[in-house]
Computed example of a mutant assay.
Amino acid sequence: MMNPFELERYFARWEFTAPFLLSASDTEPLAMSELLRLASPEMSDAWANLSLGYTESTGHPLLRQAIADLYTQTASDEGGEPPHAISSDDVLVFSCAEEAIYVSMRALLKPGDHVVCLWPSYQSLYDVARSIGADVTLVELREEAGWAVSASEIEYAIQKNTRLVIINAPHNPTGSMPDHDTWRTIVKTVEGSGAILFTDEVYRLLEHGDAVPLNAAATSSPRAISLGSVSKAFGLAGVRIGWIATRDAAIFRSLETYKDYTTICASAPAEILAIIALTNWSSIVSGQEAIVTANLKLWEAFMSDHESLFRWVRPTGGSVGFPQWLGEGSVDEFAENAVQEAGVMVLPSSVFRHGNPRVAMTNNFRVGLGRKSFPTALDRLGSHVRARYG
């Protein structure tokens, strides 16, 4: 039996009823017309004459190639070995990243296996494994350590029966990222242990400032798995396209076979839209980066004006951060007051308690930096904070 997905239940309650969202995890959604304007003549024709039948179970060939090309175009030899190429045959398309997570856990784990996962993190990354009967060790990221991923703590957590080591970088909800040296150490450690490295990379390409993206896990280790999506960096959550990339043929076959019991294939319109986005990834992501950068500055100015009430570790990637509430009462009370009195939804850290209500959490909450509506929501929160907390 699986635990209720606390984050998703919270969003189900407030996402479409609260007037102002300050904790959205994605970036600014693109309009259909905006995306279609980017289409090549060939893809415009493919869209106009699309047959709404079944699609290939592994994904549209052009989509799989566009994903493989993305890895090639964003690869780096930053201080280490050049990454290995990903081919279209290494890419398996899913109907969103969540399906890819579920299928990966179900296909690769059995009762008694051991899993290492960062925490806090997206609940399905560890709770699907628990529902299977796997033993999960959560490696905690700590605010006092800058939310930094510790390669030594991951190594310490690995056991003889560890099947998966699950990393999320850039990290949700903290926005932290390992540096390139730490990342290479983690890759080599997991590879040497015989476990499979599963990396949630849905925020990849949203690194802040001059930071160079980490090489995808699938390009860095022969048995690693990279999880990708058009939801976060591309602003296309409504398209519902995700994917897995892995150079391990046995892993690929396991996931492909299990997918026959879930969606079988992706939506034909969604695949065409994803192809258009991925072949125009640079311009789309640059626009989203600009929004995140502007909102990051606004949030830091807001905190400066209310330094007795908020503090944070500045995120280094992604479109989210994890500030701490320093004011009166718990963060749950702060969040409830904000949404009930001001219509501003903020996501409290209690939703990351990994299914155990007795787990103590710090007074943090997730802030989403990717939407154009952020300044309006922040103004509304500011008025609420001044009125209630002085």
Rank of each mutant, 00 (worst) to 15 (best):
A24V: 13
I101R: 14
H114N: 12
R311Y: 11
F322N: 04
N3K: 14
P4T: 10
R371F: 15
D45K: 11
E81D: 13
V230P: 08
D379Y: 12
F198Y: 15
A129R: 07
G317A: 02
T137V: 09
A24I: 09
S220E: 10
E333Q: 14
I86F: 05
Y156P: 00
N356C: 08
A360W: 00
L30W: 10
I276W: 02
M1V: 13
D179K: 04
L62M: 15
P315V: 07
D113I: 05
A335F: 01
S25N: 13
I284D: 00
A148K: 13
L50G: 04
A169Q: 09
T376M: 14
L214I: 07
V351W: 05
S176D: 12
A233G: 07
V187F: 03
L30R: 09
R130S: 08
S124A: 10
N161P: 01
V351H: 02
N172L: 15
T58M: 14
P29M: 10
D26T: 15
G242T: 11
Y203L: 09
L52S: 04
E81S: 14
H208T: 08
G53Y: 01
G133K: 06
V136E: 06
S226D: 10
S383P: 04
E34W: 02
Y10Q: 12
L369C: 01
A12W: 09
E42M: 06
A39Y: 00
T219V: 09
